[in-house]
Design a protein around this nucleic acid. Structure first.
Lengths: 123, 123
DNA sequence: GGCTTGTTTCGACATCTGTCGATACAGCGA
DNA sequence: TCGCTGTATCGACAGATGTCGAAACAAGCC
């Protein structure tokens, strides 16, 4: 399964925490990598899915907990979860009948650090 | 001009800084609003443009500084800048011959705060 | 005024994306 | 084994997106 997922660079490395967007121009490769993650966040349903998973008790949620709150069909939810998973933003595991999803804090932290404003509004 | 841009909620309000994704499920409206911003970040060219602008001396860059490093045409760069502007991530102003773009730190900070990991990897 | 340079808008087009219903796969219980 | 429930995949389709060349608009200079 894991070969379907993107490698999240610096997943266990704190160096990326100190590299905001403004420090130096992003390289083509880094930009392409990051864009995939942001693309995964660029859909309202996926954003709400991620939030639902993150705020669920225990930090993980069954797919059965995630289909209810949305107006879209179950295959569509499954598709969105796959996008989040392949972007490295969530992990998943089957336990018996149900499949559970959880957020990967390191991936979110990477993006969060990237967007941290350098100093202030105008210098 | 400003009527073409999205209103960035909480632009001058720090309250949003304490509302990570995990605190409570995102509402439909908030998710749609945030998704537009993330969508603006979901393209490698736009990500690099934003980085170029943010890292440029003085915190702002002329369009003429931004077309060089890319393989895409100048109208395409202009299009991407428009997307970033309408998402509220950058501001722009014409000064004589040239148009300058700068990053809006508050908008980035809003997204950064949203993605901040709650506590740790599993607890 | 007319030319030149910088930037945006327009129209077109190929590709990507979100969505669905139908179907397949996985695990549990009778 | 069979049927049931939960989840993922498939195939199709409408609409969105990134890209281009051409053209329009803006400001400065001759």
């Amino acid at each position: 399964m894991s070969n379907l997922e993107l490698v999240v660079l610096g997943q266990d490395d704190a160096a990326v925490c100190c590299t905001p967007l403004a420090r130096e121009p992003l390289g083509e490769e880094a930009a392409a990598d990051l864009a995939k993650m942001f693309k995964a966040l660029s859909d309202p349903v996926r954003l709400r899915l991620l939030s639902l998973i993150a705020s669920h008790e225990g930090g993980e949620a069954c797919v059965c907990d995630l289909t209810g709150p949305f107006d879209v069909s179950q295959p569509t939810i499954s598709h969105h979860l796959k996008v989040l998973r392949e972007a490295g933003l969530v992990g998943s595991e089957r336990r018996g009948t149900w499949v559970y999803y959880w957020v990967r804090p390191a991936a979110l932290a990477k993006l969060s650090a990237l967007l941290q404003a350098p100093t202030g509004e105008s210098g």
